[in-house]
């Protein structure tokens, strides 16, 4: 049992695989993930989305150990809904980021093995993205955030493709191309992708067909 947890500490984030990326555009944000669900190199399902809606202007993507992705997404949704009931307003992405951070830090010595990416628009419709590590250290970024087994590939390609003030459609193209080309070089991610573009008026959700290998 102890060895099992030691193994998890080393590879918890790599057991199921996955890729999540979020980007800032002009008055919009985009968040995208792959759809693979697997056990190490065995692929079990290709409809496992890792992005969860907290409210109309705030999404979270969780990459890492699938069980913790499920547990954490449910816990966070619960906390968001309770916040809404108590405060009678929607939680803003920045407050949500701190909520995620403290939730993760609550489990400092037995962490959830997942890294979140948060994307949303605040009360003035200003774009907000951030990511945290598995114990809740927040990284506020002005451009893009990535996480999952494909993180390195995503860093490289996003750094090249991203530019400031992209409109929703341009941002969609940039985030899709970044994600697709990045996870094609990662054996643990891929098998379809989903992209959400959050604009003040509406949310555009698109499912991408990708190569199945």
């Amino acid at each position: 049992m102890i060895t099992f947890f030691l193994v998890l500490l080393q590879s918890g984030n790599e057991y199921n695989g996955g890729a999540v990326v979020a980007m800032v555009g002009k008055d919009c944000v985009a968040i995208a993930s792959d759809k693979r669900f697997g056990l190490e190199l065995l692929t079990l399902a290709t409809d496992f989305e890792k992005i969860f809606k907290m409210n109309d202007k705030c999404y979270i993507g969780l990459a890492g150990l699938a069980t913790d992705v499920q547990t954490l997404s449910e816990e966070l949704k619960l906390k968001c809904d309770l916040y809404k009931l108590r405060e009678e307003r929607e939680i803003t992405p920045k407050k949500f980021a701190h909520l995620v951070s403290s939730t993760l830090y609550d489990h400092r010595w037995g962490p959830y093995f997942c890294e979140p990416c948060i994307a949303g628009l605040d009360e003035n419709n200003k774009p907000f993205i951030c990511s945290t590590d598995l114990i809740g250290c927040i990284n506020f970024a002005k451009d893009f955030v990535v996480c999952g087994t494909t993180a390195r590939e995503l860093y490289g390609i996003c750094e090249s493709f991203w530019e400031p003030d992209l409109g929703p459609e341009e941002l969609f193209e940039v985030i899709s191309q970044s994600l697709l080309n990045a996870f094609d070089r990662d054996s643990k991610s891929g098998w379809g992708a989903v992209v959400h573009i959050i604009t003040p008026e509406k949310i555009i959700t698109r499912h991408l067909k990708t190569r199945q290998d």
Binding site: L39, L65, A66, T67, Q70
Partner: peptide, 19 residues
Amino acid sequence: DYLASLKKLPFAVQGYGQY
């Protein structure tokens, strides 16, 4: 699985039979 990852599947195998 034992990690409590839950997935709805059209067909499923548990154990070495997966391979």
